[in-house]
Simulated scan of single mutants.
Amino acid sequence: MNKTIFDRISTIVEKFGNGKNTVFASLIGVSEANVRNYKNGVMPKADFLEKIARSFDININWLLTGEGNMLSSESEKEEKLPSVNQTYEGTPYFNVDFIGGFDIIVNDQTRNPDFYINYPPYNQEGVVWCNLTGHSMEPEISNGDIIALREVTTPIQYLPAGEIYGIVTEEYRTVKRIRLSQKEGFVRLIPSNKSEEFCEQEIPISMIIRVYAVLGSIRKFF
Results as ranks from 00 to 15, higher is better:
M1F: 11
T4M: 06
T4Y: 06
T4N: 10
I5Y: 00
F6D: 01
D7W: 03
I9C: 01
S10A: 11
I12D: 02
F16C: 04
G17D: 06
K20G: 02
K20T: 06
N21C: 08
N21V: 02
N21D: 15
N21F: 00
L27S: 05
L27W: 02
G29S: 04
E32G: 10
E32I: 00
A33E: 14
K39G: 01
N40K: 12
N40C: 00
G41N: 05
G41K: 01
M43D: 13
D47L: 04
L49S: 02
E50C: 04
E50S: 13
E50M: 08
K51P: 00
A53L: 01
D57G: 07
N59W: 01
I60N: 07
L63P: 07
L63N: 07
L64P: 05
L71A: 10
S73R: 09
E74D: 15
P82C: 04
V84I: 15
V84L: 10
N85V: 06
Q86K: 14
T87F: 15
G90I: 07
G90P: 10
G90F: 08
T91D: 01
P92H: 08
N95K: 12
G100A: 15
G101Q: 08
G101K: 09
F102H: 06
I104S: 14
I104A: 15
V106P: 01
N107S: 14
N107L: 09
Q109E: 14
P113I: 02
D114F: 04
D114Y: 00
N118Y: 14
Y119F: 15
P120T: 08
P120R: 11
P121T: 03
P121Y: 08
V128A: 07
V128K: 10
L132N: 06
H135Q: 14
M137K: 08
I141D: 02
S142Q: 14
G144Q: 14
D145Y: 03
I146A: 03
R150D: 00
R150N: 11
R150H: 04
T154K: 10
Y158D: 13
Y158K: 13
Y158M: 06
Y158G: 00
L159F: 03
E163S: 08
V168S: 07
T174L: 05
R177T: 06
I178G: 00
L180I: 09
S181K: 03
K183N: 14
F186N: 12
V187N: 00
P191W: 05
N193A: 07
S195L: 15
E197A: 10
F198E: 05
F198V: 09
Q201E: 15
E202P: 05
I203M: 03
P204F: 07
I205W: 09
I205K: 05
M207G: 03
I208T: 01
V211P: 04
G216A: 01
G216H: 02
I218K: 10
I218C: 06
R219T: 14
K220C: 13
